[in-house]
Design a protein around this nucleic acid. Structure first.
Length: 430
RNA sequence: GACCCGUUCGUCUAUCGGUUAGGACUCCAGGUUUUCAUCCUGGCAAGAAGGGUUCGACUCCCUUACGGGUCGCCA
């Protein structure tokens, strides 16, 4: 039975690197019908915050990564906050003491490493050997501070043992820590889990992605108008490949295709443009109803009313936006008569000789007894031909007159949604 | 500095000794849309360098260069 975990410390927001680590652990567990555990490593009392703890839960929930054991959920190996597991750590500490592997150093306790080469079999990196005879590079590590608290390496190992982890999938920044953990586990007389160290995520310029960098916080993605499945899809592709030409996957499809063997060893740079493209692909895949629901908060945030024709309006722009944040600006001209216009585009359209025909077009439309996308388009053809112009040449001025911009939905949709009166009114104003 | 991991188009990647080195993002050009976008088609663009091993190397080995990581009483 596979058991994996995500063990963040609540000292900041949830980082995309952490999000991807959580994702890979989750995917591996789900793929093999195993158990996924969330454990909060809050041993650094000085740096832990309640906001950070909440950000982890919010981020995990948003990404759709549910846990089988952990906070709010419980489980047979709890509690799942390290700050509440001190008795357990004391027990293990006694074992190390009894095995004569600890010594006091300035009030703190250090673990005495065995001075020999340590070889590990990493599921991603393969066989890696670190020579512990070189003490300058591997000084005996502190497991208990002089203030009595335990350090990361110790509690992390104890918990992975206690919680019966079978696989530890974590960032490559932990690769050099693994022999330390292996030594600790051996000293405790236990069997280690299998390790898989995944490459780090870098900034577009190749530098290490850390706090403050664009795209670093998982919590920023929903605000920027990304769908959670897009983000999951995109970060899965950073350091992992399905080995096929397909790239757009739902969470379920990822579970189906995921494997540790397909994880790369080289770090990957974050490409914001591609992330947006992935989002666009997911928007295209979801239903109009779902899209309307997801876009609604962004529309309301811009103080735009949800009108009766909201469904039609949203449907007209669904395949034109890459981010949900683009929706308000894409639909506002449908909803209000004083939506912001692109001055440059308007000037360009007014300079267009064909815009002189717009008045004629408005008059012609005013005489129509019925109204539909096709009838309105036909009116354009009629007016154009009567004035020896091509219908297509009228499209641009008409678009600008009706929407105030150069880009937008199909003109037929615009005619239909705006209706006869507003269409004519805007043509005349222009 | 020492140690560890890595290095295919600008970016994400496929390739498990024999391929015209494939796909995707970006960019460019056509086409569709009586319209901009979407979409479709095409194009630009890569094996870090040098040595080996081999009939044959992007693929295996060594060296160098470059990138990342680690050397805490942070996690």
């Amino acid at each position: 039975m596979i058991r994996t975990r995500f063990a963040p410390s609540p000292t900041g927001y949830l980082h995309v690197g952490g999000g991807r680590t959580a994702l890979f652990n989750w995917l591996f567990a789900r793929k093999h019908k195993g158990t996924f555990i969330l454990r909060v490593e809050d041993t650094d009392a000085a740096r832990n915050t309640e906001e950070a703890r909440q950000a982890i839960f919010d981020g995990m929930n948003w990404l759709g990564l549910d846990w089988d054991e952990g906070p709010d959920k419980g489980g047979p190996h709890g509690p799942y906050y390290q700050s509440q597991r001190n008795d357990i750590y004391d027990n293990y500490f006694e074992k190390l003491l009894a095995a004569d592997r600890l010594y006091n150093d300035g009030g703190a306790y250090r673990f005495r490493f065995e001075r020999k080469p340590i070889t590990m079999q990493d599921l991603v990196c393969g066989e890696v050997t670190i020579d512990y005879r070189d003490e300058s590079n591997t000084p005996d590590m502190v497991v208990k501070r002089s203030d009595g608290s335990y350090v990361f390496h110790f509690v992390n190992v104890v918990d992975d043992l206690e919680m019966r982890m079978t696989h530890v999938i974590r960032g490559e920044d932990h690769l050099m820590n693994t022999p330390k953990h292996l030594q600790l586990i051996a000293a405790l007389g236990a069997q280690p889990p299998q390790y898989a160290h995944i490459p780090l995520i870098l900034n577009p310029d190749g530098s290490k992605m850390s706090k403050r960098d664009a795209g670093a916080a998982v919590g920023d993605y929903p605000k920027q108008g990304f769908l959670s499945e897009s983000v999951v899809n995109f970060i899965a592709l950073l350091g992992w490949s399905s080995k096929s030409d397909d790239e757009i996957f739902t969470l379920i499809e990822l579970v189906d295709r995921f494997s540790l063997e397909a994880i790369n060893r080289a770090p990957a740079r974050f490409d914001f443009e591609k992330c947006k493209w992935v989002n666009q692909q997911h928007i295209a895949k979801i239903s109009t109803e779902t899209f309307a629901d997801l876009a609604k908060p962004f529309v309301e945030a811009e103080k735009l009313p949800i009108t009766e024709n909201y469904a039609a309006v949203i449907s007209a722009v669904k395949e034109k936006v890459r981010l949900l944040t683009e929706v308000p600006a894409a639909i506002d001209f449908f909803i209000t008569d004083d939506a912001a216009q692109d001055a440059e585009t308007v000037a360009k359209a007014k300079a267009n000789p064909n815009s002189a025909l717009l008045t004629t077009l408005a008059e012609h439309m005013a005489e129509l007894t019925e109204w539909s996308a096709d009838i309105a388009k036909e009116a354009i053809t009629t007016v154009a031909q009567a004035n020896s112009a091509k219908p297509g040449q009228l499209m641009f001025p008409v678009r600008v007159a009706l929407s105030g911009r150069a880009h937008g939905p199909d003109l037929g949709d615009v005619f239909e949604i705006l209706g006869k009166e507003r269409t004519i009114a805007r043509l005349r104003i222009f």
